[in-house]
Design a binder for these strands. Sequence first.
DNA 1: TGCTATAGGTTCTAAAAAGTAACTATAACC
DNA 2: GGTTATAGTTACTTTTTAGAACCTATAGCA
Lengths: 119, 119
Amino acid sequence: MAKKYNISVEATLEVIGGKWKCVILCHLTHGKMRTSDLKRHMPNITQKMLTQQLRELEQDGIVNRISYNQVPPKVEYELSDYGRTLQSILDSLCAWGEQHIIKEYGDKFAVLEDNVLNH
Amino acid sequence: MAKKYNISVEATLEVIGGKWKCVILCHLTHGKMRTSDLKRHMPNITQKMLTQQLRELEQDGIVNRISYNQVPPKVEYELSDYGRTLQSILDSLCAWGEQHIIKEYGDKFAVLEDNVLNH
DNA sequence: TGCTATAGGTTCTAAAAAGTAACTATAACC
DNA sequence: GGTTATAGTTACTTTTTAGAACCTATAGCA
């Protein structure tokens, strides 16, 4: 049967842990996005990691994958209903990061890439 | 100069990302703990990883290290004031994990180790 | 004397995670 | 006919992370 957890947060980390998942999900809190949009917002992620992480999030029921049957392909991702139960956590993580940047660097504009500030 | 972030959550993950930090911090939300207490609550962490992660959290100002000058040594860790700005996020992460476990397994008692349930 | 407990350091190795590069398909366009 | 765009796969390599096994010091105790 199931694995054992020593504290419930371990279960959370199994779903949204790792280097990229929280970042992907934070972007998706702003709404549906195509693969190429995500890629644009995450210039350092590789195609491989992006699809791999999205697959896992899909399998865990966090995101929906919407595939339009056309060529060239068009695929969109969005937070699922279940994924939206993470929304306030994701918002808080972003907000904390922003405060942390201000604390560390004094000015968030100094370290946030332009594209981010267009939110 | 500073590195650039493409989204503020990246800064958060730099501080509390990784396999162990959130778990350590969640335990510390319940109050000050000795190294050996933490170890007991995290049977799968190695001594090396535990001290390494605690060092990093200390350097980022998230935890305080309180060393009593005695033999055998006694060291306690606690959330710092700054670390406590993460408290509600940590609580939410734990709560979400608990709900997720219930969703996945139906019964949290089936997968949470006994020691956890004594909280 | 020899053992335990405590917190931690060090070196080496194993495993996991992530990156690189090359490949697929096909419609639309020049 | 050649090029671009899109989303994705695959095999291989590198980097990062984590673990195992060893070491330190010393008070207290049988």
